[in-house]
Amino acid sequence: MSLPSSGQIAFSNVASEMEQTAYTESHYNYWFSIWGRGYNSNYPAASNDFVLAPINVHSSNSGKYTTTTPFTLSNWYGFTQFATYACDGTNRSLFFNISPTAFCNPSATIIFDAGTTSRNLDITISGNSTDFNYVAGIRVWYGRPWTTNGLGYGIGCQLVYENNSVGSGLSTTINYNYTYNAAFGQYIYVVIYGICP
């Protein structure tokens, strides 16, 4: 699935692509600049707090989503929330979808397809203090860590790694015993979330 590359596009199309089709909080509903960039996504929230899907910054989505104001729908032509990388040891870039100085709590994600074969995986994360500027934390999840109604997280997923002290940079390899669970699916989500500058 992906958004059309041209022609008519609606807020609801983006909401559906961002897996937030059931998100109905009145004062945020269709507040495109909020949920379209994953505001508050994957925050360490209670079950009744809002946890929106962050933008998938897969390389195929580069330039296809809104990064600066004013927000325009046409920027989303061709965007896909479901683009994945293979677990092939290639370094993949993970960056904020929007300048962290423009808004509090920006977030971004990349997704890896781990397949259905259980095995050990080495998850390597690296970056210096500049790379992690304004990054409050990074999390790795097995399974999708947000819900379509934007409420809560941790349903149908497993927290693999969490680090909330990355300000001076990070260089780590996590050895993860990946055990395929049909209820969780086959995708590993790596998410960064930001702080207010």
Binding site: N91, N120, L121, D122, T124, D131, F132, N175, Y176, I188
Partner: peptide, 12 residues
């Protein structure tokens, strides 16, 4: 430079 992530099959 950027935050870089890679996932590979483990050696063990």
């Amino acid at each position: 430079m950027a935050i870089l992530v890679n996932i590979a099959n483990g050696s063990s």
